[in-house]
Nucleic acid binder design. Sequence first.
DNA 1: GCTCCATAAACCAATATTATACCAAAAAAT
DNA 2: ATTTTTTGGTATAATATTGGTTTATGGAGC
Lengths: 229, 229
Amino acid sequence: MTASQEQKLGAADIAALVRREISKGNLQLHDRLPPERVLAETYGAARGTVRKALTRLEEEGFVEIRAGSGTYVVHQPDGSTANAIENATPLELMDTRFALEPHICRLAVLHGRHNDFDRMEALCTRMEECVDDPVGFSEADTEFHRAIVDSTRNGLLIWIIDQIGNVRSADDWTRMRHLTLDAQTIRTYNVQHRQILNAIRTREPERAANVMKEHLETARLSLTRASET
Amino acid sequence: MTASQEQKLGAADIAALVRREISKGNLQLHDRLPPERVLAETYGAARGTVRKALTRLEEEGFVEIRAGSGTYVVHQPDGSTANAIENATPLELMDTRFALEPHICRLAVLHGRHNDFDRMEALCTRMEECVDDPVGFSEADTEFHRAIVDSTRNGLLIWIIDQIGNVRSADDWTRMRHLTLDAQTIRTYNVQHRQILNAIRTREPERAANVMKEHLETARLSLTRASET
DNA sequence: GCTCCATAAACCAATATTATACCAAAAAAT
DNA sequence: ATTTTTTGGTATAATATTGGTTTATGGAGC
């Protein structure tokens, strides 16, 4: 398969390698790949072989070969953010949150500042006023988790949570969610939110992470309960 | 490894370079780029070639060429995705991996199948053959972590790790990384990779997660050590 | 034997690049 | 205002690069 050492590379192998470079992003859209004669040398193959590989890639729609000019990349490696996110199932989402949010709490303990905590505090009170308003609660809830990740000052994490937030607001998905949001559940969530905030405020990373885990566990339970209905 | 070493740069190459400077933010909206004659010299090409590149970029809507005045940037790089990722610092990246990968190991224990493990196994051996080849090791390493997340069958997580992989392959960032990859470090990594694989194979979620944490801790250490240089 | 595939070399045709010169629009200096 | 400088716009002929094609050769597997 992957000929690691100095094996002979066939046309198919070379095609695979180049195809991979493209999906990997090393070769981007509109890039011109090296001349056939150069490729031949770097892959240790004859020009004819490289040529076969490229012709095949052209048929597959990865590249475009222009005589006298060169071979160019014509393929967006399905960067469609939308797709991976739109198609995410509620369970996939829960697993992802399980991975991210407890550790985010630890980081919030490390990097959070007073005004971050004030913002969370405000959101807690707002949620407590929404015991009978699932929609309002849901908005505040999203913002609360967003506030936590904001306090980490980690742009990458913030961006990821942001993207995930787009899933949470997907249509049928929110509908499902609201089913699970009776007053009792909201009250439980509120208690947990307070616990999370306190743990972060008192700078206890592990406790913060654990409380977040419990919180997510609760959320997962009401989810699976709802989907059994 | 774009074909941009000491080769002669063609119009397409120059267009690609400028396009990237724009997406990256080094050239911002309404900035004027250097005169064609200067660009020609800096890129080591004739003016006509630079000209072709710029004309093409104008057609693509990246720049606007005004006779007698100059060439100006007219393009907002799709802020959301590219920016958060391109601008991520190594430390932000480490924190993010700390959040994700241990839990991903747990999920791999739950959902992984035999052929997943076989793939990881193959990558382990490949890495062990790369003790003196940092570049080859680095590739295999990325693919190993990718294999783990693949085995979770969680499209959302796979997508996230994929995005993060793009950071890892950013230019100056890889350069920094290779500095830290002496043979000794690679050997340490290899041991840890084996431990991770074994823990997943024997279906021990917590042990898998913990070994992954250790692994990341090691990586973070060699990173901070490198940046103090 | 045969076929399939890869190699190597040579040559052709399409395109790109270079180097140079000069023009026209805009900006800057006077 | 006018001149000067800078900048893009255009043209051209020589040269270099690149894909396209053909041919002859050799090896691996059937």
